[in-house]
């Protein structure tokens, strides 16, 4: 596992000068992942902020081979690349000593929603790739529309806080659980504030053959309506409140990688974000309570499941 000193000496594989927002969580996530992965990777990316901002013709920020084909098929596309790799390798048309890893990126829109089928297919078929969802909890690229990853109560442009309906009415989908049901060799949740945990998970995932999955929280200060300089703090608080538990499932064995000494109430995280400001009003207290209940239930179930093993 690489140390911070080693990582800091490695070449940046996502060049600066891209057009992602200052303070964007996605680019921090991608840089950490590529530092851990190294040069011998091919990347596919779903349509979204990350893709449109890093590959504006005739420029590209990607110092590794990169393919974007559409919104819903980052997984299927990388599966095709990987299939060609297996074929050409078998036919002796690629250097024998050169091992290539495959990483697919997608946002929550491209992963939880429109790309779920493509992801599921790729996982089930057992392609040798790592899928990374950078989860910012809404369709940020098209202007902050709700996704199935948007937390309960959040104000988005398609789940607006109106006179009658106070923001998103549903709990978020538990994609990590859905992925786990595919019984792949490795999956984890991670966060960019804990670079060590994230990079170690990438290294571990890439050392394993078969399909792997990482769900990484990627705060979006524009969509969350927070400070440009709060990205890492928001990621940290998501973990400290157990909204975003850091855990991994390796060959079916669940390990919680971080347990807050004192689990913070969700309001600590909520109050920094404009998208939840209406939840601080007394009449919406029940939504806040429901949100807390959902978080508690998931955390309890993780603790229980870890204990069972």
């Amino acid at each position: 596992m690489a140390t911070l000193k080693e990582l800091s000496k490695r070449e940046e594989l996502l060049a600066g000068g891209h057009r992602l927002c200052a303070g964007c969580g996605a680019s921090i996530v991608v840089r950490q992942i590529l530092l851990a992965a190294g040069r011998n990777v091919v990347v596919s990316c779903a349509t979204g902020c990350l893709e449109v901002s890093t590959s504006i013709y005739p420029y590209t920020s990607w110092r590794v081979p990169f393919i974007h084909s559409a919104f819903e098929n980052s997984a299927a596309t990388v599966c095709g690349v990987e299939a060609m790799y297996q074929s050409l390798k078998r036919r002796g048309k690629l250097p024998v000593d050169e091992e290539i890893k495959f990483i697919a990126f997608g946002g929550d829109g491209g992963t939880y929603d429109i790309g779920l089928q493509s992801l599921s297919g790729g996982l089930e078929r057992g392609h040798d790739f790592l899928y990374v969802c950078y989860d910012n909890g809404a369709y940020m690229n098209t202007g902050i529309q709700r996704s199935s990853s948007t937390p309960l109560g959040a104000d988005t442009t398609t789940s607006p806080v109106g006179k009658v309906i106070p923001g998103k009415q549903q709990y978020r989908k538990d994609l990590t659980d859905i992925v786990e049901a595919h019984h792949i060799p490795y999956l984890a949740q991670a966060s960019p504030h804990n670079w060590k945990d994230l990079t170690h998970k990438v290294e571990k995932a890439l050392s394993i053959k078969g399909p792997k999955f990482l769900n990484v929280i990627a705060p979006c200060h524009r969509g969350w309506r927070a400070g440009v300089n709060q990205t890492i703090e928001l990621a940290r608080l998501a973990v400290e409140t157990c909204f975003w538990p850091l855990y991994e499932v390796e060959d079916g064995k669940l390990t919680i990688n971080y347990k807050p000494r004192e689990k913070k109430p969700i309001i600590e995280w909520i109050k920094l974000q404009g998208r939840f400001s209406h939840l601080l009003k007394p009449e919406n207290e029940h939504i806040l309570r429901r949100l807390q209940e959902g978080i508690d239930a998931k955390w309890e179930s993780l603790l229980r499941r870890e204990g069972e093993k």
Partner: peptide
């Protein structure tokens, strides 16, 4: 290498990835 995709959309997506791979 035969990829038995889960839909035609993914089948063509995988074809695209594979063809771009070379």
């Amino acid at each position: 290498e035969l990829v038995t995709a889960e839909s035609e959309h993914s089948a063509m997506s995988a074809c695209i990835g594979a063809a771009a791979a070379g």
